[in-house]
Amino acid sequence: MIRFLEFAGRPLVFFVEECGRIMLLLLSTISWMFRPPFRIRVIFKQMEFVGVNSVIVVMITGAFTGMVLALQTYHGFRMFGGESLVGSTVALSMTRELGPVFTALMVTGRVGSAMAAELGTMKVTEQIDALNTMSVNPIQYLVMPRIIAAILMLPVLTIISDFVGIVGGYFVGVNLLKINSGIFIAKIIDIVDLEDIFNGLIKAAFFGLILSLIGCYKGISTIGGAEGVGRATTQSVVLSSVLIFISDYFLTAVMF
């Protein structure tokens, strides 16, 4: 019995410890955020990496999400003559859910994994120790700019994704499925609130925090050489994605 408890308890203890370490990383990141020097250039560099360089993949994802959504809902709504609601359904889904979540997932795959890999490599090749020996705090120099960049850039990527998704939905709905364009847009304006967009953007910022925090955490806690880096990268993507979905539920429950 005791052995069973030990067996069951060990992963639980590990999980709690892991959560604790992630929170500690977050706390020290926040505390380093307010201490000079403020590395604006490093933050900009990360913003470019997280934001600008992800825009194409996010736009493609957003556009096709909107398009497939229009296609799917059209067939559903046509059964009771509700084709006019396709536009607002696409817009509402994009702004509230699919825009933030899909953007976050794409950025996790592209950026979160890169963060884990980059910091992991730096850890195993002692570059992080080197930073320390040069009196540069690695959290301030490496983690904080990444987290700030992700928190700032995810909402921007999301609004682009929202827009492109709605445009994609419009293209499919109006040009291919011949829904009246006036009604398509009027229904969007009628049903979608500004709050839907803003809440989606707040979500996106949270997701940005999650994916960058997990990516950095997995990176700087990497052990075991190149193999360890690979492991850290995979774990960061899986853990970030899962946490994004879980937190999405709770954020939705709180906001809408």
């Binding site: 934001g51 909402p155 921007v156 929202d162 304006i189 609130d193």
Partner: peptide, 27 residues
């Protein structure tokens, strides 16, 4: 420059947000 790229990117985001906000008419 990196700053210019990020700047352009953010401005595009803000323009889209502004456009959507105005179309939705609540702001």
């Amino acid at each position: 420059s990196i700053e210019a790229k990020v700047g352009v990117f953010v401005v595009i985001g803000i323009i889209i947000l502004g456009y959507m906000s105005m179309r939705l008419g609540k702001l």
